[in-house]
């Protein structure tokens, strides 16, 4: 079987899997961004309880493995009466995990805004909320974007693990094809290439574009 014939036969399945991977990535990214912003801000709070809660969340999710978290959410949560469908369990686990890493980026980005900016906003009698939303966060966002690009690639890679709870993503399809045909190089190799294209031809250019737009908006072009 030539590689062309292989693609002819199994290409559509691989593409279906890639669509599922893309969906998992999008949903997990949305969740991760939300969690990152909330937890990142909580980590800057002076309230010990708020700060402590965020710290525990971040340390637990960063201190254990994504795979462990996926299994736990899928197999153990039902024992607490919370049964999630495998597709949902998949992106929630990935989103919660990467959100913990993102929270540290948010925190670091906000702290990197020069002190003078905080003082200037305070001197203009801005409330803390307005100061954060209008002055600090936009500047922090610009600094955060490059590391978020890397984090989103990590997130895409992380979604490959949802195949292990039988979500029919790209990884799952590649394994299935491998299991029935034993054409391992073709099956896994094609999947690797598709992941690479998604990382470098979709996520990276998108983040570059976003950076350009943000830079222009903030007048730093």
């Amino acid at each position: 079987m030539t590689y062309f014939e292989f693609l002819n036969t199994y290409g559509p399945q691989l593409l279906d899997g890639a669509v599922t991977t893309a969906l998992q990535t999008l949903l997990a990214a949305a969740l991760a961004i939300g969690i990152a912003v909330v937890m990142g801000l909580m980590r800057l709070s002076h309230n010990r309880f708020v700060y402590g809660a965020a710290t525990v969340y971040i340390e637990v999710f960063r201190g254990t493995s994504l795979l462990v978290q996926i299994y736990w959410i899928f197999f153990v949560l039902p024992l607490f009466g919370l049964t999630l469908e495998k597709f949902t369990a998949g992106y929630i686990a990935v989103g919660m995990n990467l959100g913990a890493y993102g929270a540290e980026l948010v925190r670091g980005g906000i702290l990197s805004v020069p002190r003078g900016q905080w003082e200037a906003a305070t001197a203009l009698s801005m409330s803390p909320a307005i100061r954060m939303r209008r002055i600090i966060f936009p500047q922090a966002l610009l600094k955060m974007l490059p590391p978020w690009g890397n984090l989103l690639i990590e997130l895409l890679k992380g979604t490959a693990l949802v195949a292990l709870i039988s979500v029919t993503d790209l990884m799952f399809v590649a394994r299935k094809i491998n299991g029935t045909t034993y054409l391992s190089a073709q099956a896994f190799g094609s999947a690797l290439i598709i992941y690479y294209v998604m990382s470098r031809s979709v996520i990276t250019p998108f983040m570059r574009w976003l950076e350009r737009v943000m830079t222009r908006k903030l007048g730093r072009a």
Binding site: K157, L161, M171, Y182, Y195
Partner: peptide, 17 residues
């Protein structure tokens, strides 16, 4: 840019082929 878990499968299964 590609998942480690997939690379593990790749290395493990491509050899025997």
């Amino acid at each position: 840019s590609t998942p480690l878990v997939l690379q593990i499968f790749f290395v493990f299964y491509v050899g025997p082929q």
